[in-house]
Simulated scan of single mutants.
Amino acid sequence: MRLHDRVFLLLGGTGGIGKALVEPLVRAGARVIIASRHPEKLEHREGVSLVHLDLAAPDLDQQLVRLGDAYPDIDGVIHCAGQNCFASLGNMTVNELDAQIAVNLRSAMIVARHFAPRFEKAEQGALVFVGSTFGSIGFPGYTAYCASKFGLRGFSEALRRELADTPVQVIYVAPRATATDMNPEAVNELNRALGNAMDAPEAVAAQILAAMENDDRRRFLGWPEKLFVVINGILPKIVDKAMLKQLPVIRRFLNPGVLS
């Protein structure tokens, strides 16, 4: 996929990985349309347009119609918006569950539903979904997040196969732990305690762009995380045992005050 002269709608472009994508996309000659609930709070710059879009809203489909009418030249969507909540299932509110499903999964499906037919008719277009290692490996404390990212991985795979005989590209990229503001300090401390590496958002952004330029169908980031994804798919009991050994440490950060 070429990036020059493309027009990308970037979802989740106000922070973390999405924010790190803006500069290299503009530098590559692409035009970027950043969608946000509060575009008025963002800084204007050359090559970037700011639009309002609420991914969790019930009328997201209608918002996309208006957005598509205003920007008919969009020929690529990068969905890297996400919400997570590091908590045991019983300690999560229904609103927290709903928010993760709505932003991480439902919005991706509705966005693809809007743009895929347009791209197919135009005989050009790309749908890029940023998932997670936790979309392949269930991890304690992230039950809802894992459910939404497992769903996103399955959705992108099914959609890619549904559009396999069309010019529309469907790409799924799964980062490992990434150092973004979305992580509470307890998660950063947990990763340090477990020895989990955390990538900088800029490094992940570079991998996403590489996957796009190489026309990868899927790309999993990080080692040994990529190996664990394969093992979990073939021999999940091995990962079960490894997680069981880590569980006392995880519980210490998941439920402060509980001794390991």
Rank of each mutant, 00 (worst) to 15 (best):
1 M>G: 11
4 H>F: 05
4 H>A: 15
5 D>R: 15
6 R>I: 00
6 R>V: 00
8 F>M: 10
12 G>A: 07
14 T>G: 14
14 T>E: 12
16 G>D: 09
17 I>G: 10
17 I>W: 09
18 G>D: 10
22 V>I: 15
23 E>P: 04
23 E>Y: 06
24 P>S: 10
28 A>S: 10
33 I>C: 03
33 I>G: 04
34 I>L: 11
38 H>K: 11
38 H>S: 13
39 P>M: 04
41 K>C: 00
43 E>K: 13
43 E>I: 08
45 R>I: 00
47 G>V: 04
49 S>Y: 02
49 S>H: 06
52 H>R: 15
54 D>A: 12
57 A>N: 10
61 D>V: 05
63 Q>E: 09
64 L>I: 03
71 Y>H: 14
71 Y>M: 00
74 I>A: 04
74 I>C: 04
79 H>P: 06
79 H>I: 01
82 G>P: 05
82 G>N: 06
82 G>H: 06
84 N>P: 04
84 N>K: 03
84 N>L: 13
85 C>N: 13
86 F>L: 00
87 A>H: 01
89 L>M: 04
90 G>S: 08
94 V>N: 12
94 V>E: 12
105 L>I: 00
106 R>V: 02
107 S>D: 11
109 M>F: 10
110 I>L: 15
118 R>F: 05
120 E>L: 03
121 K>R: 11
124 Q>G: 09
130 V>S: 05
133 T>H: 10
135 G>P: 04
137 I>H: 08
138 G>P: 09
139 F>D: 00
141 G>D: 00
141 G>C: 02
142 Y>L: 13
142 Y>T: 01
145 Y>H: 15
147 A>R: 03
150 F>K: 03
152 L>T: 03
154 G>I: 00
156 S>Q: 11
157 E>H: 13
158 A>C: 05
159 L>R: 13
162 E>Q: 15
164 A>R: 14
167 P>T: 07
168 V>K: 08
168 V>P: 08
176 R>G: 05
177 A>L: 09
178 T>V: 10
180 T>C: 12
181 D>Y: 07
182 M>I: 14
188 N>I: 00
191 N>I: 02
192 R>M: 01
193 A>E: 12
195 G>I: 02
199 D>A: 15
200 A>N: 11
201 P>E: 09
203 A>H: 12
203 A>W: 05
205 A>T: 03
205 A>H: 08
210 A>C: 03
212 M>P: 05
212 M>L: 13
213 E>P: 08
216 D>V: 04
221 L>C: 10
223 W>L: 14
224 P>R: 11
229 V>M: 15
231 I>H: 08
233 G>I: 02
234 I>S: 09
239 V>I: 15
240 D>Q: 14
240 D>M: 13
240 D>H: 15
244 L>Y: 01
247 L>A: 03
251 R>N: 00
254 L>N: 00
254 L>A: 01
259 L>H: 13
